[in-house]
Design a protein around this nucleic acid. Sequence first.
DNA 1: TCGCACATGTAACGTGTTACATGATTAG
DNA 2: CTAATCATGTAACACGTTACATGTGCGA
Lengths: 183, 183
Amino acid sequence: MAMTVRTICLAILYEGEATGYEIRKLSTEGEYAYFVDASYGAIYPALARLEDENLVTARIEAQDGKPAKKIYAITAEGRRVFIGSLFDRLGEDDLKSEFLLFARFAPELPQSLVSQRINERLDQTREMIKELEDHSAKDVAPADRWVLDFGLTCMRSAHAYLVGHRDDLIAMARPEEGAAAAE
Amino acid sequence: MAMTVRTICLAILYEGEATGYEIRKLSTEGEYAYFVDASYGAIYPALARLEDENLVTARIEAQDGKPAKKIYAITAEGRRVFIGSLFDRLGEDDLKSEFLLFARFAPELPQSLVSQRINERLDQTREMIKELEDHSAKDVAPADRWVLDFGLTCMRSAHAYLVGHRDDLIAMARPEEGAAAAE
DNA sequence: TCGCACATGTAACGTGTTACATGATTAG
DNA sequence: CTAATCATGTAACACGTTACATGTGCGA
């Protein structure tokens, strides 16, 4: 498994028909945002290639007012290939966190900045948790809920850590120039 | 901040001199493995470019037996540029998890495979926790420890989730063909 | 003796992003 | 009237990986 845009397209189409436009939304906002953030420039060519390989089929649907849609559906062969790829050895997760790199350099940065960034982080974390909870509240398949709950568990502990250790990191940062010793 | 190989080179050199070879080790095995996995093909050209821009300097050190080293050091300008980049708005973390995608499709996969992959996952998680603990045990800077502890917190809750919900996911998978109803 | 660790670097290739091109409808 | 949403697609560019090229010394 290589988890490229191609893989994500197949994964999404495995669960039902979709257009390139919809796939992009799912991959950046929806339940798949977990896995990748794909852009049009990657999705459309990937779908075209999948069609060439007969792993998906396309059907065009005219709409009035709006541009015509190109609705993709996975083929039996596509299902076989996708599931087959899940038997391959899994690559390790990779996490890329600018926040954590930032945090390492807290001692070189002003307290106000560190404080602000942690707050932004907390907000993002809370929002992510809310989104996951909303998803989980819906009627999702059990395996999807399992994944969602995994994410929630991690996010909640990250949140708790931030709340509990926020001040520690701020304390390591450079005191503001001309800051009063007030409260 | 864009967290490219270039950024990682500056971050590593910020803390002390290093060769391209060493940077690669740190970025794949060491404490920076958190942030990226960089290969030689990315690191050497990045360092050459940083040298052109006067953000780092290089000094060649001959060794007998082994090939000559090219030791890089960050310049004052390099420090300024790097720290300056930390003031930029941070990009959101992105996590790319093949394991989670795999888990979503558990109902389409045989129990033996799902079971095996979860076990592998558990092993990896345990190993990661051990590595982080070992690092944390060393005499690291407080901000580094903060980051390490953040990672540990998340990893430990992921581990606990896997231990507690392992069987749930396996139960969702396809029962083995010809499997006995034993035990 | 086989392969690994040390050590640097290039070239081909793959994969993805950004910006552009096009264009109607609808909500603020 | 302005921006966003719907909708597809291409081209230039950036970034990174893999494999290759080169070569020594050491441990199993």
